[in-house]
Write a protein that binds this DNA or RNA. Structure first.
Lengths: 173, 173
DNA sequence: CATCCTAGTTCATTCACTGAACCGTGGTAG
DNA sequence: CTACCACGGTTCAGTGAATGAACTAGGATG
């Protein structure tokens, strides 16, 4: 989103949600985190986001409890950003938005296909498996694959790694 | 959202969706449209949105096919903005976002409660009825009521009308 | 005729986004 | 010991969208 990030008069959970994740780039950062992107440089290269904006978004998401900043190496000191339980629950709205776009804004086929790791069935917009009927699946049980509509013209490590099937939340690349 | 509304390198249906509905205010406009708000002045009063931004957002949504602009009176000429089928399908992602905020960002209770008009059961984040089990319900089958966490300090016609139970998409106020 | 209502547009100001440059820490190579 | 590089940022000038107030236009209303 953008300027003046608060919707003051709106006593509404949607408005409160958008104050946090509705800013420009934020949902794409969370999506990447759910795909398994964890390092600053990978977000940067995959999203083509200005460094200052990425820093600010990561700080906001950490402060809000959507991501956790975690030391994964001491020398040199390196931190990674990992979705918390709260962040993992954003999977459902992000999926619903993506599926809506797939249905209404895409002329080519699906760019990415989600399937249930336990049965291989396709996932619908409510995170349910159209194969076995399991409802409201968490990201841990989902695999992403490139779909027929995906243009594979990007060469950053994340884009390359996502050309193979990949389970959500598993570290990339 | 904000500046430079396109996510050029992102070959992703979520990014395409956000280019359209991810701008600042846009999702709140769609939410209001699903609640039944139809007139420029009602959006304006309920959202406290700058007039120029509202005009621009309505035009974008009409052009994209999310809303339809419809003449409802000839003298004086007056148009209303009504969700198309494409717009009505945004119900699911908007609900999922709102429910996420309700769970994670709200200290008071729910601000609004959604229920199934056919059985009175509560609606979950996947638009399914927890009472009768009906899945993926469309907005036509949903009723909104004020929840315990709603502060009723606003006096615009839409806020006042929404203090009563109201079926989604039914014209307000 | 004067006033009001609705639905806008215009405009100066403010403020976030952008992209490029710079910085600091800690390896690593010679 | 010095140079250089990788990573993860911060800083900064320029741009452009959001903001809010003022203004406009068409038509009803008194």
């Amino acid at each position: 989103m953008a300027l003046g990030k608060n919707y003051d008069g709106q006593d509404c959970s949607l408005a409160r949600t958008l104050e946090l994740v509705g800013e420009r780039w934020t949902m794409l950062v969370v999506r990447d985190a759910l795909y398994g992107v964890r390092r600053y440089g990978d977000f940067l290269a995959h999203l083509d986001i200005p460094r200052a904006v990425l820093s600010q978004r990561l700080a906001t998401l950490v402060e809000a409890g959507v991501l956790e900043r975690r030391r994964y190496q001491d020398s040199p000191p390196r931190d990674e950003y990992v979705p918390t339980a709260m962040g993992r629950e954003l999977w459902l709205p992000l999926l619903a938005l993506g599926q809506w776009g797939e249905r209404h804004l895409s002329r080519r086929g699906a760019r990415r296909v989600f399937s249930h790791v336990d049965c291989g069935g396709r996932i619908d917009a409510t995170a349910s498996c159209t194969g076995c009927g399991a409802a409201h699946l968490p990201p841990e049980r989902i695999e992403v694959r490139p779909g027929p509509g995906l243009a594979d013209d990007r060469s950053d490590p994340v884009s390359v790694a996502l050309r193979e099937p990949h389970r959500l939340l598993e570290p990339l690349p």
